[in-house]
């Protein structure tokens, strides 16, 4: 039998259609709820539940198959490539928002202030508008909220940067432990990483509360608020996902999964976490410093 050489092709799966139904009801429900449809919210929650069910069911099946040894090296490489290119798509998604930040800051706002060949833009639209960054005084103050201030780099953001950077270090420590097969050190490193991730998220929530309640810095605070909350918000979402994935990996390590020769799940999640970490570093530098 040559079966061990064969690429594993599963024979049919229900999970994708479950995922599609979940996705359609999540997004369809969300869109309806935006227009005051009460059923929409219910549909949205239902969709989310279905998607979570699908993710755990699907991934659980993959983990079982992986642990039973029916995946050969080639299947493993497919998963690696899939993960790698998925992350690339994430990079491009963030690039759109970083691009919007760059464009607003370096082009749109100065042009509104009359820079370049846009002298009359400023004169005709909002003659009193002054182009500064961070943009506090939006051109049309009747339409958007004017914040009292912005979040300063030396408050929560610096602590958060420290938390995430430390978590990257503890994760790398766990990674080395995995390669050297020191099980307790992996678990300790992963727990430390997860705790730091949760601390980061808690501080982020506190920061948002501070911005909304005391500073009047909101999504509605013009382009500064828009880019600030969308970038940090999507980043926070990714930290949340990363933390959940790390918890799953921790559970698997405790159950004795992974060894120095077979641990793609760990590597994929570790890389994801490092990626989220670097996005934060980029946010910290480009939003707060440069």
């Amino acid at each position: 039998m040559q079966s061990n050489n064969q690429y594993f092709v599963p024979h049919g799966s229900y999970w994708p259609i479950v995922g599609s139904v979940g996705m359609a009801s999540l997004l369809g429900g969300f869109a309806s709820s935006l227009h005051g449809n009460v059923l929409g919210t219910g549909l949205m929650v239902l969709g989310l539940v279905i998607i979570i069910f699908m993710v755990f069911g699907w991934m659980g099946q993959v983990v079982l198959e992986s642990e039973s040894g029916i995946y050969n090296k080639q299947v493993d490489r497919s998963f690696r490539m899939g993960m790698g290119w998925f992350i690339f798509s994430e990079v491009m998604f963030f690039a759109a928002f970083f691009g919007a930040l760059w464009y607003a800051r370096n082009l749109a706002v100065p042009w509104l202030g009359g820079e370049g060949n846009n002298f009359f833009t400023g004169q005709v639209l909002w003659p009193d508008f002054k182009a500064v960054w961070p943009l506090i005084q939006v051109p049309d103050v009747s339409k958007y909220t004017v914040p009292k201030g912005i979040i300063h780099a030396w408050e929560i953001p610096a602590i958060n940067t420290l938390a995430l950077l430390t978590s990257g270090a503890t994760l790398t420590w766990a990674h080395w432990a995995l390669l050297n097969n020191k099980r307790n050190q992996i678990i300790a490193g992963l727990i430390a990483t997860i705790v730091l991730g949760v601390i980061f998220l808690a501080l982020q929530v506190a920061e948002y509360g501070e911005a909304y309640q005391h500073l009047d810095l909101k999504l509605t605070s013009g382009i500064y608020g828009s880019t600030f909350f969308m970038l940090t918000g999507f980043h926070g979402l990714h930290v949340t996902l990363g933390t959940i994935m790390l918890i799953v990996i921790l559970m698997r390590v405790i159950r004795g999964h992974f060894n120095p020769e077979n641990h793609f799940g760990f590597e994929g999640v570790a890389w994801y976490w490092h990626f989220v970490d670097v996005v934060w570093l980029g946010l910290f530098i480009f939003v707060y410093w440069l």
Partner: peptide, 10 residues
Amino acid sequence: ALYYMMKDGD
């Protein structure tokens, strides 16, 4: 790191 993850095996 991403490249090595895709290129090298475990």
